[in-house]
Each structure stands twice: as C-alpha cells, then as structure tokens.
Design a protein around this nucleic acid. Structure first.
Lengths: 91, 91, 91, 91
DNA sequence: TACATTTAGTGTCGAC
DNA sequence: GTCGACACTAAATGTA
C-alpha cells in the first residue's frame, strides 16, 4: 500500500510529508535515549570492573538470568553431547 | 585480578556479594528502560504503518540519516588525523 | 528439531558424529584462512608504517571508502524501496 | 612521524601518493577475501543447520576448542561463584 | 594496561 | 510457522 492518499504526482502531500518528518524525528529521539542508557550501562560495568569483578562473567550471568532456565540447561546438554562426540570433556 | 579480595574459599565475602547484586540490578534496570524505549519505537512504527507509510522505507531513511551523520563525523576525524600526521594541530 | 535422529540416548549416532566432525573441521579451516589473511593485512600496515605512513589515518581512510560504498548501496536500495512503495517497478 | 619525506607543501609527493594508493588497494583486496571466506563459513553453518545441528551450540563448541581449556574451566568456576552469590543454581 | 575500533554472534522483526 | 534481514550486543583486536 502507498502513503496517505498521495494519488500520483509521485509527490507526497504536505501533510503526509509532515507526518513523515514527525515519525523520523520521534524515532531518532528514541534512538538517542537508548544510546544514553547504553552509555550509563557501560559506566556501571566500568565501575564493577574497577572493583575487581570480571565483566565478561557479569554479562553472562545477566544473560542467564534473563533467559529461561530450562532452555539454558537444554543448551548445556546439547553442548555436552557435541563435545563428547568431538572428544572434548568440558566439566 | 579476582574480585574484591575473595582469594580462594570459593565464596564471595558478603560485601562483595552485595556489590554484585547491586551491579546486576542496576544493569537489569537499565536494560528494562531500553526495552521500554524499544517498545515505544515499535509503537511509532506501528502508527506510521497505520497511516499508510511503508515501515521498511522508513527504517532505511533513518539508517541513511544515521550513516550521513556518522560519515560526517568520520570525515572530521580523518581531517583531524591528517592534521596531526602533518604536524599541525588544528582546533 | 534435534540432530540427525539422535532421539535420546544422549549419544550421537556415528554418522552424525562424523558429520559434526566434518563441519567443525571445515569451519576451523576457514577460520585459519581468515587468520592468514588478517596476518597479511597486518604486514601491509606494518610496511606502510615503515615507509612513514600513519596507520591510524590509513585505517580511517579505508573505513570512509567502505562507508561510501555502503552508503551508495543503501541509497540505491532506498530508491528501489520508494519505487515499490509508489507502485512503480524500476529495473 | 610524517610520510616519506613530504617536506612542507602539505601535499604528498607523487611517489608517496602512489604508495598510499597501493596500500589502500592491497588492504581492500584482503578485506574482500575475508568477506568471501566469511560467506563460505556461513554456507557451512547453513548446511549444518539443514542437517539438524544446532548452529548456536556448534559455534560455542568451536570457540571452546579454540580457547585454552584451563581458561574455560576457570571461567566456568567464576560464573558458578557469581551465580551462587546471586542465588542461581546452574548445573 | 586500558582504551578505542572492528568484527563476530545473537536476538528480533517483518515477509511469505 | 519458517525464512531471511536488520539491529543490537558482546568479543577480539590493535593502539597509545
């Protein structure tokens, strides 16, 4: 489907044009906010690192908490299976 | 280095444990905020779509604008680098 | 879905095991090739540096050129998208 | 240091300019080769997936093989430590 | 060593 | 519901 009743001059009517600008700006503003938050998170990791924590492990921990526990265990099991098939013993 | 003086009992001292919890919670809170913002962006796209805009085009537009900005910054940076490489020191 | 009919003995059938090994080896071979190429690139940078060029500037240059190409492709893509959105079908 | 004896017109002598072009082209060629190889790796993963393998686990397996075994076990231990501190039981 | 950049990997979204 | 593309996150590398 094409935009808001622009009929065929291949030019957007000015109201559609305004809407478009508005959408773009709103999205871009939200993207900036996300970037700011990402920046703050970075600072928290940095502080944690400064206090002797291993940030890589910290990240992994957080991702595990976010993820379904059952899924995690299943993934570990498959990994274990593959590892045995390759002759690697992990744990 | 390992964390806050836990040397090898394989147990975190309670203050380290508290710090850990605090870091995890702060990060998780920031992650939630990001998710909320992402949700809002989704709504904007949805609204745009409802008004007849092609969201794929919209996304491309936004990504090009972002690229433009990034490219502009890169160009400034390379200028600056050249200047340094030449031994002058603009700005 | 799980792998090639290993249903639950938690052991991979020997043909699946062979496939697994084969995939792993192929990927690892490709990774080695990439590493070799990366090594060659490193040598080029090193040679450039030896001839008085600033490698950081060189890298920036290359990244800008890459960006230019990417941007050009994006712009073609967005043109194409607009065309579709307008119901015409160029190319 | 600045480039190949260009003394002060802020213009690169033509031989330096030629070298520069040559370096840029060599690097770009190597980058293309890397991209081709990455493409091939993608195809292998795709084929593996088609035969029922879990590509995510496959990737993890390959990364573990690449990595020092001792390091892997250490990382798991730290993760376990942090997880306990957070009241999560992983394995 | 710590920082910044680049590259790989993972998750999400929309199309078919 | 699966597939492919896109965006975001995380790891690795290279530099100062």
């Amino acid at each position: 489907m094409s935009a808001v009743g622009h009929n065929s001059g291949d030019i957007l009517p000015s109201d559609a044009q305004n809407m478009l600008k508005s959408y773009v700006e709103r999205i871009e503003r939200l993207n900036e906010e996300k970037a700011e938050i990402a920046e703050q998170a970075k600072e928290v990791f940095s502080e944690a690192k400064g206090n002797g924590f291993d940030t890589k492990v910290l990240r992994k921990l957080i991702s595990i908490r976010k993820m379904d526990r059952a899924k995690w265990k299943e993934e570990q099991a498959v990994l274990d299976l593959y590892a045995h098939a390759m002759g690697l013993d992990l744990f």
